[in-house]
Structure formats: structure tokens, C-alpha cells
Computed example of a mutant assay.
Amino acid sequence: MRRLPVYLLLDTSGSMKGEPIEAVNSGLETLVEALRQDPYALETVHISVITYDREATVLVPMVSLEDLQLPRISTPDSGPTHTGEALECLERLYKSEIIPNSEDKKGDWAPYLFIMTDGKPSDVMLFGQMCPRIKKLGFANIVGCVAGPKAHRKDLEQLCDQVASLDTMDSTSFTTLFKWVSDVFAQGNRSMGAKADTLPPPPAEINLV
């Protein structure tokens, strides 16, 4: 069975401490539970979780949805948001993990990327350099989310095909967001990794451009 790789890049900088990161933890559980209700997703989806604050961390190396065990995500008390470093980490993983098509074997479906932040990149120059490199890798869709009043949509618009925004950062909002993201990935399964011109309609709490 060909894989549908999914990468999640999650902001864990100090501003996410407390209720926001707990809401993200709950949202991730919702995403995984929703995908596991889809028999085809259970067979094909493989997930990797990368967190980023002052450094990028591969929290969950690429693993099948069936074998995935979500760790509890935490944040430092304070510190920068090195989004560019996270994209560098992603590029390395993509090049080492994604199985390309060959004459003898069909490789992975085109991967999906979801990136979430509540602020803006601290490493602005590196972020700007990495955006076009990530876009050239061959993701089926790159979906971003900016959460809270201090998030900068224009930064993620350099990278993402679509950017969703959340006005609040509570558990209900993130649960709704991650449920919608699971619908996006499920659509990727049905389209067998093909690039989607449109995404599933988001709920009212999510603004999508």
C-alpha cells in the first residue's frame, strides 16, 4: 500500500504556554481519532510531528497512523520562534523519508504539510530563504494556520496554498481546527495525493483565504 505522508509543524514557543498548548494537544488527539475512523486513512496515512521554538525538534518521526502514539507537547517559558529552522528540518526529512516513484516501484503519494503558529518567525531571513525551497519539494497541499491576535498571516502566505485563522486559542477552537485538518488529509486519501484545487469547507470558526 502506498503511503500518504503528512507533516505537522507546530509552534511551541513561549507564547503558546498554558491553555494554548493544552488546546493543541487536545486538537491533535481529535485529528488522530478522526483519521482512524477512516479505514483507508488507517492504511495509508503516515504522520510526522515537528515542533519549533528556539530550536526545531522531530517530536514524532514518520510513523503509520495505526502505530502513532502522541506524546504530550510542552513549551518553554519563553523564547524565539524559529520557523525557518523548522522548515530546514522539514526539508531534510522530506529528502530522506519520501519514497519517490521509480521504474520498478510506485513511491509515496504527494505529501501534505500543515503548519501552525501564534506569532511570526524570529529567523526572518532563513524563513524567507526556505519558503521557496519547501514549495518546490512537491507537497500536494501546504495548509497554514495563524492563531490568536499576534499571528501574522502574511508570513505564512509566502509558504502556504491556504491559510486559516483562529481568533481564539481555546480548546474548542483548536479541536474544531484539527477536525477540519483531518478532513483535509482524508480528502488527500480520496484524491490519492493529487493537489486539491479546493479544500473541504471550513466551519464558521475558521477563516480561510
Rank of each mutant, 00 (worst) to 15 (best):
I206G: 04
V209G: 11
S74Q: 13
L156W: 08
A147V: 11
I99F: 12
D67W: 00
E85C: 07
D167L: 14
P203R: 11
T172I: 05
T117W: 13
R190A: 14
P111A: 06
K136E: 12
V6S: 05
R153V: 15
L35K: 04
D53I: 05
L68R: 01
A140C: 08
Y7P: 06
G128W: 02
S191E: 14
R153D: 05
D197V: 06
M130W: 00
I206E: 02
V45W: 12
L42I: 09
Y112K: 12
A86L: 11
D167Q: 14
L166Y: 04
D183R: 10
V124P: 00
A194N: 09
L68K: 06
R92H: 10
P5G: 08
V49C: 01
K136A: 13
K154E: 09
N101Y: 09
R133S: 03
L28I: 02
I99D: 12
A41Q: 09
D77H: 08
N101M: 02
L31T: 05
S191I: 06
K135A: 10
T57F: 01
R190M: 10
E55V: 12
M116P: 00
L9W: 02
A110C: 09
I134M: 04
M130H: 01
K136P: 00
P80M: 11
Q69V: 07
F178R: 03
S13Y: 06
P80H: 13
P39I: 01
A140R: 08
G144T: 05
S13N: 04
L70I: 05
K195C: 13
S48H: 07
L93H: 05
V60L: 08
